[in-house]
Design a protein around this nucleic acid. Structure first.
Lengths: 128, 128
DNA sequence: GATTGACTTGGGGTCAACTCCAAGTGTTAA
DNA sequence: TTAACACTTGGAGTTGACCCCAAGTCAATC
């Protein structure tokens, strides 16, 4: 697959794909004799993985490290696992915080729907 | 409360607090005769609100708009509600995506814990 | 055989959201 | 009364993550 096809498939720009490869979020993609990238299924897997993890907020830096370890082989399994665990835990916390905020928003919207009676004492501090 | 106290209380930098006020994420804070900010309980409420919403990923721009509407009074209730609903929906989607990624990470970690038998066919495409 | 179109590289530019800095003022402590 | 300290402003700088552009190559078409 060409870079344009992959870009469309995953809704990323070709620039982003080249960027990801350059910094090492995805391993180097093989080229045809003219130097044009030819993405294999495996490459696409990496692209999809990168996109998914980035969407969830994992920093580029962490992904770079993960991919580098992956490419070093089986000696790095333990280190990779630790990265995953750390990021999993952080993600979990972020989600929990966001859940709370979601509920807060829902509560506020409800208030707005109940005619937004801000005079009521128990709502007074929640008009923000 | 002084800016330093508020900064400590909410774990934000004083610079960030001034920045939030300047751009309108929080309403203007009253000053004492020397021009030094004196945060009321209400101001703190706004700070906390801003921090919470920013943490959840709501863009600064949106919060600016919301606060501006809030300050314009009751005519803007409907518009404010719509902002909240839109942001609530977006937040919900983000959370759902992140949930999926969380599960994916958990699955990968499990694999690493099961001795990471990457040879097994059903895991082959999930080594990323 | 010249144009078109898809790709290449290297490097500078942009955007959101802070973060830092210099220069200044006013209160408190020695 | 001078030093130390907490704050002020305006504006420049930083960071993370892309995004864009010029200049060039190659293959295919007109």
């Amino acid at each position: 697959m060409t870079i344009t096809e992959v870009a469309k498939l995953y809704d990323l720009s070709a620039d982003t794909l080249r960027y990801y490869e350059r910094i090492g979020i995805i391993p180097n993609v093989n080229r045809n004799p003219n130097g044009i990238r030819n993405y294999t299924e495996n490459d696409c897997g990496w692209v999809e993985f990168a996109k998914c993890m980035r969407n969830a907020g994992l920093p580029v830096e962490v992904l770079i490290e993960y991919v580098a370890l992956f490419q070093k082989g089986d000696d790095t399994v333990e280190a990779r696992k630790e990265i995953l665990i750390e990021q999993r835990d952080k993600l979990k916390e972020r989600i929990e915080e966001m859940q709370k905020t979601l509920q807060r928003l829902n509560y506020k919207i409800e208030n707005y729907e109940n005619g937004f009676r801000q005079a009521e004492a128990n709502l007074k501090l929640d008009n923000k």
